[in-house]
Design a protein around this nucleic acid. Structure first.
Lengths: 292, 292
DNA sequence: CATTTTAGTTAAGAAATACTTAACAAAGTG
DNA sequence: CACTTTGTTAAGTATTTCTTAACTAAAATG
């Protein structure tokens, strides 16, 4: 019998691991992959044996990933994304089609900064399939990691996921937005607040910069949508911190002082073959961003 | 019959591709992998079929990689390096050993800046296997890519290879070194030169900064070894540009003005699980670098 | 120019791997 | 306690990948 080389882990087993991590139960993971539960079980048992590391724990009749499984899961996701990319590349090259581009953008990117770029890109390159997803930064990053996107524009994260590269695009000033007729005050009397949701990246930027001047943020409402937040401010529910450009002009609110800036960045997966369409799009995004 | 999913490329076939790229002939690649030439041929034929991209061309009775094979080769190397890393990690974790660390360093790092760090690290962690390789930056980078190293200290490259990350460590000033008794002159009268070899990264930095003040570098001798270059200068063969610290003190040469600075960086593979020993070593390198 | 050597491919069967079904154990559920 | 859900194990089947052996074609040899 041949010795199982730990270096030569079947791709399939890595898929199994990812599926198991992403599904509540192993059987559902198995059906999602179109294989029997048995195959999954055997495959994962083999993976565990190969690595010689305990990847799973019993929890009642469920099996859950151990902490040790984490690096392996990271590895699996990385390899999966890479494989996806080379597959896409091969299809593009072999069929001589332009392929398609899936872009993820923060709302502010899609609506305020780059709507024209996106529109023009679609009309200039009608042969390139194009799909835009607007979502919060963390979702975009997760999607980029999973190869759901080829390119995203998001807020620079404090820590980049592995094999993701970020290049700066532009900076945005976030200002304090007060309810109508509310004058400027010392920081200790600021708030209460109406902010982006907990976990949002801009939210943590804001919290950090509010804590600094000595205002413990007391948050009474949350939304990912800046227009909703602005609306709440105009109704007197609380104060907000928003990108200047995203405060609707017709609303009756008080624009206060800039409190923090956030960096919008372009993120891509590293180690993937270049897609010429993506290159062009990046160029155009940069051009507009530099122009601002 | 099952349809061949291009996304599920056997790792083995990627190994074949890399081996073929690294060996002059397919048969030697096959024997280096310990398989028959036939297996290799079939495997690569299958890979080509899966991707639907022409990867090989005939050249007489040889087969060589096409340009199209390049992205696939990149992919293969990346995946190989990742697999190696997860394998190492697994072995470390499963055996509870500290594993080993392979460090690559530029001569100036090993000899001038960090000899103490390296010595102390070895005595502080005798359980961690340790191996140091001193080589030029480009070799180090290639080795890092191939997973020959876990960590390197080199000159910041103008373009990073995919899935390699670089973090700044310190800056070095390179000065003009003139033969004994030769006074400072206008740039047009500089040289002739005794420099690092063509292709060296520091060489291109130097060339760029020499061209700027208007001195076309006429190069009469080359070496990777700074002490050799300095020696040649002292013999009156030509002028050199060297890190101040690498000009031997006892030599009779004229130290001229600083002409360019180079960044030394720490490079690692991205997407690899962390090795605690490597983290410690990095910390110590930074500490010393910041102290300078 | 015939002969030999070298490089790589193709065919056929053997070996190894991965999958399916079926039977089973154990933990929740009504 | 019967019943369902979750996951494992065993045994046989299907698929993939390898080896050996026979073959083609380009270079090298003499």
């Amino acid at each position: 019998m041949k010795v199982a080389d730990p270096l030569d882990i079947p791709l399939r087993q890595l898929e199994y691991l990812v599926a198991v991590a992403d599904h509540p139960t192993w059987s559902s993971a198995a059906t999602s992959l179109g294989v029997s539960a048995s195959a999954l079980s055997q495959g994962l048992a083999d993976l565990e044996r190969r690595l010689g590391v305990q990847l799973f724990e019993r929890q009642g009749r469920r099996r859950v990933l151990t902490d040790l499984a984490d690096p392996v899961l990271q590895h699996a996701r990385t390899v999966q994304a890479l494989s996806h990319d080379i597959g896409q590349w091969a299809e593009r090259v072999s069929t001589l089609k332009m392929g398609s581009i899936r872009v993820g953008m923060l709302d502010v990117g899609a609506v305020i900064h780059f709507p024209e770029v996106l529109r023009l890109f679609r009309t200039d390159f009608p042969d390139i399939g194009f799909h835009l997803t607007v979502a919060p930064s963390s979702e975009l990053l997760a999607g980029l990691r999973r190869a759901d996107f080829d390119l995203i524009v998001c807020v620079r994260p404090s820590e980049l996921p592995p094999t993701i590269s970020a290049t700066p695009l532009l900076q945005e000033r976030l200002v304090i937005v007060r309810p109508p007729k509310v004058k400027s005050r010392p920081p200790s009397a600021w708030g209460p607040w109406v902010l982006f949701p907990k976990g949002s990246h801009t939210r943590s930027l804001i919290e950090r910069s509010l804590r600094e001047p000595g205002s413990l943020p007391h948050v009474v409402a949350e939304s990912h949508q800046p227009d909703v937040l602005a609306q709440m401010v105009s109704l007197g529910l609380g104060w907000a911190v928003l990108p200047v450009a995203q405060v609707p002009e017709h609303l009756d609110v008080e624009i206060g002082e800039p409190i923090v800036t956030r960096d919008l960045v372009i993120c891509q997966r590293e180690g993937a073959p270049k897609h010429p369409g993506v290159e062009v799009l990046i160029e155009r995004l940069r051009a507009v961003a530099d122009h601002d």
